[in-house]
């Protein structure tokens, strides 16, 4: 599995490095537009150069209404009409108006400043809840039903497709698909106040066999022994978080049933390991200011360790 999301050198840029059928045509379009734009800019610069420094003969050609008609009206009209036709056809084919056969269905709900993920079966019944991470099989289109719980957010995984807003009162649909296994970084693209900058997530694409294994592994973990579970219930954690198979049933925050197996913490911003987990519990406000989880300075070192050990074991 290639993971170039959190360590990439920045080239090629995500939008120009497509990884699925819903992003690839857009990348081609982007390249054509960038190249065409450069050529047209060069033409304008050349014309400006001629106007300023050119030979009298060339200047005379440029200096009249005919030149304006050709360069300013006829040429753009032709180019723009061509582009528009391409753009419209692409819009039609990439829109989630017609849902492909056999598409997997997932509902994703944007919240200030994280993501609820509800996996569904083909009839749209909820099968599994998770947060801040979306697992998909490669080669299968995924129909996302995008909603918002509070303010407007926008779902964007540049390598898999364009973005789509999540608007209160509406359900928007977006199709994505990955061609190859990997981890694809996503980000909220609509300003949603406070730590909008730190509202990320990841999409993990598995080969079909791996995806089946992953699905099978989605049962509540046994959990570690020790003080952890009791601390979780007694310290207020359970008021906001759910861990299936335990009395923790809170709904305000992310479901933590499988938090130990997540790639990231804090909605796509930290790698997940015991150190970051402990740091997040103790003072998430220092890491992601204004997020909805209070800092828990009151835990002693041992308590924090126990709680961390419990949570990282929730695979």
């Amino acid at each position: 599995m290639t993971d170039r999301t959190l360590s990439a050198g920045g080239w090629p840029p995500a939008v120009l490095d497509p990884a699925g059928p819903y992003s690839e045509p857009v990348t081609l379009l982007a390249w054509v537009l960038l190249a065409g734009g450069t050529v047209i800019l060069a033409i304008v610069l050349a014309a400006l150069w001629i106007a300023l420094r050119g030979s009298p003969r060339l200047k005379a050609r440029l200096g009249g209404e005919k030149a304006i008609w050709i360069l300013g009206f006829a040429f753009p009209s032709v180019v723009l009409t061509g582009l528009l036709v391409w753009g419209l056809l692409l819009t039609s084919s990439l829109s989630a108006t017609a849902v492909p056969e056999g598409a997997m269905r997932v509902k994703v709900i944007g919240e200030m400043w994280w993501w609820r993920v509800h996996y569904q079966d083909e009839q749209g019944r909820e099968t599994l809840r998770d947060a801040n991470e979306l697992h998909i099989p490669v080669g299968q289109p995924v129909l996302l039903e995008l909603e918002a719980a509070d303010v407007i957010h926008s779902f964007w995984v540049p390598r898999l497709g364009g973005k789509m807003d999540m608007i209160p009162g509406r359900t928007n649909r977006l199709l994505i698909e990955a061609d190859a296994p990997g981890v694809y970084k996503g980000q909220c693209a609509e300003y949603c106040g406070g730590p909008h900058a730190l509202m990320g997530f990841v999409v993990v694409a598995h080969s079909p066999a791996d995806f089946a294994r992953w699905q099978a592994s989605r049962r509540p973990a046994e959990g570690a022994g020790g003080e952890g579970p009791a601390l979780f219930l007694s310290s207020g954690c359970a008021a906001c978080h759910t861990i299936r198979g335990t009395p923790a049933r809170g709904l305000a925050g992310p479901d933590l049933t499988h938090v130990g197996s997540r790639k990231t913490l804090g909605a796509g911003i930290l790698p997940n390991n015991p150190g970051t987990m402990a740091g997040w519990i103790a003072d998430s406000q220092a890491i992601k200011p204004a997020n909805r989880m209070p800092a828990y300075h009151q835990f002693s070192g041992e308590e924090l360790q126990a709680l961390t050990a419990y949570l990282v074991a929730l695979k």
Partner: peptide, 29 residues
């Protein structure tokens, strides 16, 4: 003269984002 160069550049990226599929990527970025 500077204005012509800069404005034309901005106009060309404007045509890019007027293309709906490209805008899905570029929007709010």
């Amino acid at each position: 003269m500077g204005s012509i160069v800069v404005f034309v550049t901005g106009g060309l990226t404007g045509v890019m984002v007027a293309m709906v599929p490209f805008d899905w990527q570029a929007h709010d970025s």
